[in-house]
Design a protein around this nucleic acid. Sequence first.
DNA 1: ATCATACTGGACACAACGTCCGAAATCGAT
DNA 2: ATCGATTTCGGACGTTGTGTCCAGTATGAT
Lengths: 195, 195
Amino acid sequence: MKIERAGDTGTIDRRVARTRALLQDAIIALIPERGYAAITVDDICRKANVGRSTFYTHYTDKDALRSATLEAHLRSLSREQLSKEERTGSRVFDFSLPMFEHAQAFRSLHHALLASSGDTIHDQMRQRIQRAVRAELSGKRVGEAGVPIEFAVQFIAGAFLAVLAWWLPSDMKLSPAHVDELFQKMAGQAIGARG
Amino acid sequence: MKIERAGDTGTIDRRVARTRALLQDAIIALIPERGYAAITVDDICRKANVGRSTFYTHYTDKDALRSATLEAHLRSLSREQLSKEERTGSRVFDFSLPMFEHAQAFRSLHHALLASSGDTIHDQMRQRIQRAVRAELSGKRVGEAGVPIEFAVQFIAGAFLAVLAWWLPSDMKLSPAHVDELFQKMAGQAIGARG
DNA sequence: ATCATACTGGACACAACGTCCGAAATCGAT
DNA sequence: ATCGATTTCGGACGTTGTGTCCAGTATGAT
């Protein structure tokens, strides 16, 4: 599978393509090693065998490189999806399977971009929520079984955090009780609780 | 409501308590202004009217301060929860309502700690997923209604990302198809789709 | 072969970090 | 009120990483 890299629009000097590919590969290789936050531009350049000044002719930032790398891969993913005919069967969401498959194929990439984001805060908060969910879920048996408890924990905790983050800056048009009601409803249905 | 701050164990010199409180308040006030990543230790100290060298006698890092601040608030939250008797009614999860309420009361704190995490990657990825979910959800009408579509989008997208992030580093004992099946099941139930 | 373009490597100023110290201020206890 | 212990202050220091610039060299396109 050929990965298109950021900036492939139109004809491009081979040197440019080469340099960008080297840099993108380098940052992906580096992130699992020491975590994104700890990486310096110099690290990337040494790994890629590219002059540091060259880096700045392509990307303004470490962030810019990361962003471009992610974008390129997501683009190639969408393209794959479009080429396949979508066989919507009993499934509800079509986007997820291709994503899981792509994640498996480009494991190190996804791992680099998702897991070790170096975001301590989110991790701290997330662990707290996960513990709470796990505690409540271990009592009730989950759904009609077949769903590993840890999967359900991740599912619910992730949903909760997303909802919370969405609700917070929204001027709180919904009351806490109302948001909670919505969350309870969807979460309860998700784990197959009898309402 | 009195917030316990990190390090309140035992008797503490007033100066220490004062300094830590000032620093914690400062970082919370600062994060919404320019985003966590852009804040420097010097910024925090100026905002708090605390000498920069003093900062380092209490926290090793900007991260350490942030972490301690979050930890202190979460502790105070758990304490509240314990003091109230838990009236488990038809609700499935007990942790969520207190969390939503706390989030409303300490809005700026939560907003500071959750929303503007400065994590460009997650945001980029998340927006992509949200778009996909929104597209698929706008077709099918959500559940038995009553649930705003955007709420459902956040819920599902958050759950998906959490599951993906959990599955990735787990050596992939589950196949993509299997993980997807689990996800489809819970997500489908969550939006009240007939299986 | 020639020209345009990209890469190099080193120098530069700058910003922020984390450490250290003596002097001043503040606390807790007598 | 006094005194010893502790904390805070402010400033200086070396270090690291950033982003810019330039002149010289290498490489691709035609």
